[in-house]
């Protein structure tokens, strides 16, 4: 099998049935995700927050890589859609005993889940699972290697839309460790599809992957230059191990060149917003005064995360159901 990663996530009539990557999805579909998420934000402000869209469904959280934060937001999103939730910390159980990913999947299928939320250290893992599990299980990618983190990217899009009105025509800078970032890759695809005027990636050559501009962005080494005319500044988290791998000399030199300070932010448009997928390293990629300042929307991002995850879970489940119905109908017709 050699399926196009962007097409495997759609039903025959173009509806979402898995959510693996923002790449290749239409503007209409991405907008539908944002609109649906918007509608859930209003339900989240009510005292009774549950909606019954996934009642009777079982969602399995398959985290092959630790992430308490992402897992919690998915768990909350599933609960607010009235689903039953199964949390599996696979990192410590199956795969450490030499079980292959396929073995693990076959075991999980036997539990009759309707949706897998997958976090895995290998790029393409969610795509692999979508290709190989039984049909009718929706796969939501919660981060695969360096490849994609589409729900994070969509909550960022929602943040931009709610704070800047629209993504169209905006200049967006993504700053820091682009090389290892699945978030950056998913953001670049989503921003381009939703009509951003320019996407800039900013960092030293060691942290910008080769041929990154082929994804539809402009590479900048000079942060000051990249901030000019910016409407949105997205700071990425810097992992400590980058220093050991000879990618960077020190945190302090990185902060001097690419850390976001009040002075630097003044180079962007005056109404620019500052984002960060979290967790933030204060004083490494961002100064506290900026992270907690009036232009920061970092905490809003977290609250939108639940709504966006509710939206893609509801949409993918509905896509799966419509596909099952279509299959049954087709089967009924051939039998008749």
């Amino acid at each position: 099998m050699n399926t196009d990663p962007s097409q495997i996530q759609l039903t025959a009539d173009g509806r979402l049935k898995h959510f693996l990557t923002t790449e290749g999805l239409s503007k209409d579909l991405l907008t539908e995700i944002l609109d649906t998420a918007d509608s859930f934000i209003s339900t989240q402000e009510r005292s009774v927050k549950k909606v019954p869209l996934l009642r009777g469904k079982t969602v399995a959280n398959l985290f092959f890589e630790n992430s308490t934060r992402t897992r919690s937001t998915f768990e909350l999103a599933a609960k607010r859609l009235s689903a039953d939730i199964l949390n599996l910390d696979i990192q410590r159980s199956a795969t450490s005993k030499g079980e292959t990913l396929m073995d693990t999947l076959w075991n999980l299928e036997a539990m009759y889940s309707d949706m897998f939320v997958v976090r895995h250290a290998d790029s393409g893992a969610a795509h692999f699972i979508a290709e190989h599990v039984t049909p009718n299980v929706a796969i939501i990618n919660a981060g695969d290697g360096r490849h994609a983190h589409p729900t994070q990217a969509m909550l960022d899009m929602l943040t931009i839309r709610r704070h800047k009105g629209s993504i169209e025509g905006k200049v967006v800078a993504i700053v820091g460790d682009i090389l290892h970032s699945r978030v950056a890759r998913s953001q670049i695809h989503a921003l381009n599809t939703l009509g951003a005027a320019e996407v800039r990636v900013v960092g030293p050559a060691t942290l910008l992957p080769r041929d990154i501009e082929a994804l539809g962005c402009k590479a900048y080494y000079d942060f000051n230059l990249a901030l000019r005319d910016c409407d949105v500044v997205i700071m990425l988290r810097l992992q400590k191990e980058r220093m050991q791998n000879a990618l960077l000399p020190s945190e302090s030199e990185f902060f001097k060149l690419y850390g976001l300070t009040t002075e630097k932010l003044a180079l962007a448009n005056p109404d620019a917003i500052v984002m960060h997928p979290g967790p933030i390293n204060r004083g490494v990629e961002i100064e506290s005064a900026v992270a907690d300042g009036p232009q920061s929307v970092i905490l809003n991002q977290v609250s939108y995360g639940i709504a966006v995850r509710m939206a893609v879970m509801a949409m993918a489940m509905s896509g799966q159901q419509s596909e099952q119905q279509a299959e049954q109908q087709a089967k009924g017709e051939t039998e008749a």
Binding site: E23, R210, D211, I212, A214, L215
Partner: peptide, 15 residues
């Protein structure tokens, strides 16, 4: 191979 496809797929490249 290290190149545009590796970057797009998020796979580590061999230069």
């Amino acid at each position: 191979h290290e190149g545009p496809t590796a970057t797009r797929m998020g796979l580590a490249g061999i230069p």
